[in-house]
């Protein structure tokens, strides 16, 4: 195979493009700018840590199933870990969202970073909702019967039936987590490519 042919391969072109956009020292940097030394910058990574715990406890719940998480003490514990890691996930994500909103974090060509965050948030809300209706207890029955009228009023009820436990469980453990994790990965890669948004510059020479 000639050098020209190798250069034209899609694998070669993709690798060169990826390495150009995101060299290793940018993907896993040694240092961060001085302005990142603030508590407001820790909530993104807190959200990531909570998401990891959500996925890990979700895996364990999937392996053992509803009988286990309803009836055994360890099942109750893992179920509670799943719930509370979701609580921390949303708590940290909202504070992260407020921080980035007031920083106008879409500045400097970071529109895609902002938008992937927005869509990840929406996917996470869907994942949380389908989780509530997949608990297989009276709470999930109550929530699904309350939600069905609202969902049906939008017209989405024809393809998204909240009373269909099998469908809701599939959305909760396959589609929405996949979307949330993939979007989060893209979001983090975009942050690495564009860098953390700097604070607003101080206005110089302003009169009081």
């Amino acid at each position: 195979m000639s050098t020209t042919e190798i250069e034209r391969q899609w694998t070669t072109r993709l690798r060169k493009r990826a390495a150009g956009k995101l060299p290793p020292e940018k993907l896993l940097p040694d240092t961060q700018p001085a302005y990142v030394s603030s508590w407001i910058y820790v909530f993104g990574v807190t959200t990531l840590a909570a998401l990891s715990l959500v996925i890990l406890t979700g895996f364990i719940l999937s392996i053992r199933g509803p009988q286990w998480w309803h009836s055994s003490s360890i099942g109750h514990f893992v179920n509670s870990m799943h719930l509370w890691s979701v609580e921390i996930f949303f708590f940290a994500m909202i504070v992260h969202l407020w921080g980035k909103f007031f920083m106008a974090a879409w500045r400097g060509g970071r529109t895609a970073t902002w938008m992937t965050g927005v869509v990840t948030f929406l996917a996470s809300v869907g994942a949380a909702f389908t989780g509530y209706v997949s608990q297989t207890n009276f709470d999930s029955q109550w929530i699904s019967t309350q939600a069905k009228d609202g969902i049906n009023a939008t017209g989405a009820g024809s393809i998204f039936n909240v009373l269909n436990l099998g469908q809701m469980l599939m959305w909760h453990i396959v589609l929405l987590p996949l979307a949330a994790v993939l979007l989060t990965a893209v979001h983090v890669l975009l942050v690495r490519i564009k860098g953390v948004v700097p604070p607003f510059e101080e206005k110089t020479g302003a009169t009081k």
């Binding site: 030394s37 603030s38 508590w39 407001i40 820790v42 909530f43 708590f91 909202i94 504070v95 407020w98 921080g99």
Partner: peptide
């Protein structure tokens, strides 16, 4: 959440 947000803005970060 509001208290955490305000505290994150005001509290000094270790090693800053």
């Amino acid at each position: 959440m509001i208290m955490t947000f305000v505290a994150a803005l005001l509290l000094p970060f270790p090693g800053r």
